[in-house]
Amino acid sequence: MIDDITRIAGAAPVLIADASSVDELRAVEADLLGKKGELTLLKKGMGGLDPEGRKAAGAALNEARESIEAALAVRRNDLERAERASMVATEQLDLTELLETPERGSLHLVTQTWDRLVDVFIGMGFSVAEGPEVETDWYNFEALNIPAAHPARGMWDTLYVDLGDPETVLLRTHTSPVQIRVMTDGEPPIYAVMPGRVYRRDTADASHMPVFHQIEGLVVDRNISFADLAGTLEAFTSAYFGGSIHSRLRPSYFPFTEPSAEYDINCVFCEGNGCRTCGQTGWLELGGCGMVHPTVLTNVGLDPEEWSGFAFGFGLDRLALMRHGVDDIREMYTGDVRFLEQFPS
């Protein structure tokens, strides 16, 4: 039996080396070590030996088995490596040879700007309030200290709708009615911004649309001052436009704030040096702001002696256009994919 074992072990390396594929090697392995393999059969025949012969045969069998397994492992490794190499060679791909590239959609420029602004204000502790686009005269004008026939109504070209009494229901001309709703529905302290769509009776041209977007902010708390307004707008300005851009306030007039101010920032194109966009002034007019008018506070049931606040607002579309160098606002609203896809996010 020892001889048989020696013979098999001696012949095995040739058989293993002759196997030219992993499959062939598997067959060789089965012939040698499988359930019906030669060594397995010899092992079954060991029962007829005396204890001493059985011990010697067992040792020889184990030794042969180990050497065969080692040889199989080496050969298998070689064969697998070769087969993978040839497979990899045939699987070569030209990664620029693409038939259908998936397309990403795009967020509207207004949405991108909206989100960016809102994120900055959330970082500053503001919540985000919204309200209806069709409003009553009360929310859009009266409560904001703009009574009917007030000359200041001329500041807004209003679109009215055929509901209720004539000229009592309108498309909001600013997001300020949301301020009234926030103050009416909630209680100070209020720290909120109101982004939204607004309407004006305006013919579309390169810089105007009858429909556009604004964001306003409102703070009502104890001891809020003009200095807080200036500081908040300065903090926002550097957070949104970058640290080198600063803000300034100039006296202005709005019926719903007093003192009122224009909110200017350093021109973002020339950083204040003067260029064509800013008319050589170094400043860009961004929007309006001021201390909430005592009449407005009274209108929403707040005591102006106890509470004070500030409000500010500016156009959102212009920021979107400025950031991307778009020179015609109408482009944003046609739904032309050749425009939309230029600004994925």
Binding site: I122, M124, S127, Y191, F226
Partner: peptide
């Protein structure tokens, strides 16, 4: 008073709000 004092002379007070903001 503010107009003739000069808006630019009113020193901004940086917000130190204890309020937190979040999306609804």
């Amino acid at each position: 008073i503010a107009r003739h004092y000069g808006y630019s002379k009113i020193v901004g007070r940086a917000p130190t709000s204890a309020h937190t903001g979040s999306l609804t």
